[in-house]
Amino acid sequence: MRNKERVRDRQRTEQKIIVAVGEIIKKHGVDQIGINAITKTAGVNKVLIYRHS
């Protein structure tokens, strides 16, 4: 059961990151994509972005 929880969390985190990148591009353009902007928009920790990239 624990592994399924991790898989779901990973998928949700990846989706948050993808959505955040899309929002940043839509609002500010590609040049404004950065780790800090993504973490702020997605509400995730920097470590998770590095882990999921």
Rank of each mutant, 00 (worst) to 15 (best):
M1P: 15
M1A: 14
M1S: 14
R2H: 12
R2G: 15
R2Q: 15
N3H: 11
N3Q: 13
N3P: 14
N3K: 12
K4Y: 13
R6W: 15
V7A: 13
D9C: 09
R10F: 09
R10I: 05
R10V: 04
R12A: 14
R12E: 15
R12G: 09
E14N: 09
Q15H: 08
Q15V: 07
Q15I: 07
K16W: 09
K16M: 07
K16V: 06
I17R: 03
I17E: 04
I18R: 15
I18E: 15
V19Y: 13
V19H: 14
A20Y: 03
A20H: 04
V21T: 04
G22R: 07
E23F: 03
E23Y: 04
I24P: 00
I24Y: 00
K26C: 06
K26W: 08
K26V: 07
K27D: 13
H28R: 10
V30M: 15
Q32Y: 14
Q32P: 03
I33C: 04
I33G: 03
G34Q: 07
G34I: 05
N36E: 12
N36F: 06
N36C: 09
A37D: 08
A37R: 08
A37Y: 07
I38A: 01
T39Y: 00
T39E: 02
T39L: 01
K40T: 04
K40L: 05
T41D: 00
T41V: 02
T41E: 00
T41I: 01
G43R: 03
N45D: 05
N45T: 02
K46R: 13
K46W: 06
K46S: 08
V47P: 02
L48H: 10
I49A: 02
I49P: 01
I49R: 00
Y50G: 01
Y50M: 00
R51V: 00
H52L: 04
S53K: 07
